[in-house]
């Protein structure tokens, strides 16, 4: 049993009468011969590492070594304590946790790639927000990681998940689709609803280029992780309300692939275009990197 498309995935779920997370766990057990309990524990270990990355990020108000980010998770925490926020407790927590994870990543701290390090803030941002704001049991959060991984697994094998190969749509787009589908299943939605949420989330981020200032995974990457959480929650709510994506998830993934292929090299993690090539972006690069220390061949 394996799946190569969202259509396959949904068919298997229907045949076995399980949700996407459960199907991923069963598939992993069948492919590796490992016990389900061991696989569950491995995933739980990753969830605990995510929590450590969040805790490290929230408690650290200092700038990152480059000086161009850092301390924003801490600021969001202070803002929440004041209590006059607009979007609500749920979204403020998601922003805070996404910032915390991505700032830990920028400090070369330990994080869990979901699916990549550059997009590592979105999924933990959403998952720990549900933990904080609902009475969801811890094991269900672990199952949410299985749901997310199944979606990422299809995207990674059919398209791409790295900014260098497909632009930021492949990173934040994939992470947001994964998180959105996971939220739906953690809230008791059906596999079909999870797939619609994933499709709507990825559609919202199609075409997004990878243009990191000075080649650092900081500007604009960290704030894109934060914004990803709001798209994930919005798409999940739409799907849970019964809204559907007019374009199937598999076709959206196909469109992401085509767009990534036709994106110019300057906008695929080379730091040669987009925000990296703005006057401020160039100035930051000059300040941080100085003159190139290696001769080009």
């Amino acid at each position: 049993m394996d799946f190569q498309s969202i259509k396959d995935l949904l068919q298997h779920c229907q045949d076995k009468n399980v949700n996407i997370g459960e199907l991923m766990l069963e598939t992993e057990a069948a492919k590796t011969g490992r016990d389900r309990e061991d696989i569950f524990e491995m995933m739980k270990e990753r969830l605990l590492k995510m929590k450590e990355a969040i805790d490290a990020g929230i408690s650290d108000p200092s700038p990152t070594p480059s000086g161009i980010s850092g301390g924003d998770a801490y600021k969001m925490q202070k803002y929440k304590e004041k209590g006059s926020y607009l979007t609500g407790s749920l979204m403020i927590d998601a922003m805070k946790y996404a910032f915390a994870t991505s700032e830990t990543n920028a400090r070369m701290g330990v994080i869990v790639a979901t699916p990549t390090a550059g997009s590592a803030g979105v999924l933990p941002g959403c998952i720990f927000t549900l933990k904080e704001n609902t009475d969801i049991p811890f094991d269900r959060l672990v199952m949410g990681l299985f749901t997310a991984s199944a979606i990422g697994y299809v995207i990674a094998n059919r398209s791409f998940i790295s900014g260098a190969a497909g632009g930021c749509q492949a990173e934040i787009g994939s992470a947001t689709a994964m998180a959105s589908a996971a939220i739906v299943e953690m809230r008791g939605g059906t596999p079909e609803q999870a797939a619609h949420a994933g499709a709507m989330a990825l559609k919202s981020l199609l075409g997004l280029v990878c243009d990191p200032v000075a080649g650092l995974v900081e500007v604009p990457c960290i704030k894109r992780n934060v914004i990803g959480t709001s798209i994930a929650f919005t798409s999940a709510d739409m799907a849970l309300a019964g809204l559907e994506s007019r374009i199937s998830f598999d076709e959206v993934i196909g469109a992401m692939y085509d767009i990534g292929k036709s994106m110019p090299r300057t906008l695929k993690e080379t730091a040669l275009g987009g925000l990296a090539a703005t006057p401020t972006g160039e100035e930051i690069k000059e300040r941080i990197m100085g003159k190139p220390c290696l001769k080009r061949a």
Partner: peptide, 17 residues
């Protein structure tokens, strides 16, 4: 594997780079 997607546990800042 699901752990190719949720993982690796790693030092930042980039999974590919």
């Amino acid at each position: 594997s699901c752990f190719d997607i949720i993982g690796p546990i790693m030092v930042g800042p980039s999974s590919s780079h």
